Amino acid sequence: MHWYVDVLKKYATFSGRARRKEYWMFTLISTVIYAVLAVIDVSLIGSGVIAGIYGLAVLLPTLAVAVRRLHDTGRSGWWLFISLVPLVGGIILLVFLASEGKPEANEHGPNPKFADAADPKVADAAV
Rank of each mutant, 00 (worst) to 15 (best):
A115H: 06
S83K: 10
L93Q: 02
A51C: 04
R69G: 06
L60I: 12
G109Y: 10
V58W: 15
L93I: 05
I40P: 09
A115I: 06
A64D: 15
R68P: 01
L28K: 10
G101A: 15
L80V: 04
D41T: 09
F26I: 01
M25S: 15
I53G: 08
G77I: 04
D119Q: 08
R75E: 07
T27D: 15
V122A: 08
I40N: 07
G46Q: 09
A64K: 03
D72Q: 11
G77R: 03
A35P: 08
A117L: 08
T62P: 12
L84C: 14
W78K: 11
N106R: 00
D41I: 01
G109K: 15
P86V: 00
F81P: 02
P86W: 02
K102Q: 13
V122D: 11
Y54S: 05
R69L: 01
I45G: 14
T62C: 06
L37K: 14
I92K: 04
R69H: 05
H71I: 07
G90M: 06
W78E: 01
P61L: 02
T31R: 06
L37F: 05
L94K: 00
N106Y: 00
S76N: 15
T73E: 10
V65D: 01
V36I: 10
I82Y: 06
V32W: 07
R75C: 04
R68N: 02
L93S: 04
F26Y: 15
L60F: 11
